[in-house]
Design a protein around this nucleic acid. Structure first.
Lengths: 193, 193
DNA sequence: TTAATTAATGAACGAAGCGTTTATTAATTA
DNA sequence: TAATTAATAAACGCTTCGTTCATTAATTAA
């Protein structure tokens, strides 16, 4: 089956040029600075072409972002919950504090007034990562490093929320020292005796 | 010696009309929907007047918001940390989930690309409230309900961050049941023996 | 009273960006 | 070669931006 479609095929080159341009502009000057006309200029592509394939600015930018940030997402497994969590949280923190990660914070901001954007970053970014955290904690439970019947969802919120709270709201630093204290404090009540 | 200023005095009525219009539009349709021209129409005021007194949209809107949300900020003191915290956190949560509170989330969003906005809500909203939380915890320490030498700043982050994490990012509910579990989990490691 | 000073107004401006449309050319399959 | 779809450049009307200008209003100082 897989019949070839009729007519001139969509140019993959053009698609990539648009997404790259969007992403580069995003990293360089932030979400707010982006315009469709700017993307079209930088990509060397007609504005009409962009509007043909994406409904609005947010949609292009999201695709540009996720296209550029395909990461491996391995599950750390050192044998120690604290170490595993430290690895996962630290790598998230250094991403979020990098210029590329700043973009994610801007997308979260955008999500406050655009529910499509919010749904996208939940599905494409947060959900997969949350599953990893859960896997880490479940393994720790299995080897009796943690108590049974913990509320893992709450635990995960407690581990990650403070990062975003600091980055989005208070502006306090998110450094390895903070992460270390965070993890050990959160796990105090959950470690087995 | 408080000399009267020369020339026609600024109209207090006009100022109020502008701030009310901005705030009402903010609650009704959100930050994104606001335009200076819209405010000027609704307030029955010239656009030039607004630009004379405020540098941009964000500045007007922030003033409108904080002008409208002057609240008392009493320090709860029931004799129980958990209850005190429950009172403070619950009232924050019901504010944040109300249509008026939604505005604060939008301002936080705006703060991601406008550091003036971020500074304003830190100083005018978060900082005062954080002092209350600290007072609650210090009182509890004083009456030996909590351990000595706790990292109160971390504790406060752990108590409040999950609310914002859910509201800004995951979209999970923030109800009394969640708050109850949150508080008791966070305090497990901190209660005195 | 009148002069000086500052506020507020309404109207207009050029610049941008929005999202759409139109006519034309390009690339592909039938 | 005909049918079909993609991409382009150019233009459109619309909205908002932030600013400017000339005029009128309200106040204090001389």
């Amino acid at each position: 089956m897989m019949e070839k479609k009729l007519g001139r095929p969509r140019s993959e080159e053009t698609r990539k040029a648009i997404l790259s341009a969007a992403y580069e502009m995003l990293v360089e000057n932030g979400f707010k600075s982006i315009t469709i006309e700017g993307i079209s200029e930088r990509a060397g592509v007609s504005k009409a072409t962009i509007y043909k394939w994406w409904p609005n600015k947010a949609a292009v930018v999201l695709d540009g972002f996720f296209d550029a940030t395909v990461s491996m997402l391995g599950i750390p497994d050192t044998g120690s919950v604290k170490e595993d969590l430290f690895i996962q949280i630290s790598s998230l923190a250094s991403f979020l504090t990098s210029s590329k990660g700043k973009v994610l914070l801007e997308l979260i901001a955008e999500g406050q007034s655009d529910s499509n954007v919010a749904q996208e970053y939940r599905n494409r970014y947060f959900h997969p990562r949350r599953l990893i955290s859960k896997a880490i904690l479940e393994k720790a439970e299995a080897r009796h490093e943690l108590k049974k019947d913990l509320d893992l969802e709450l635990l995960i919120d407690l581990l990650f929320a403070p990062l975003f709270y600091r980055l989005l709201i208070t502006g306090e630093p998110v450094d390895p020292f903070f992460i270390e204290r965070l993890i050990s404090y959160v796990l105090i009540g959950s470690e087995s005796d």
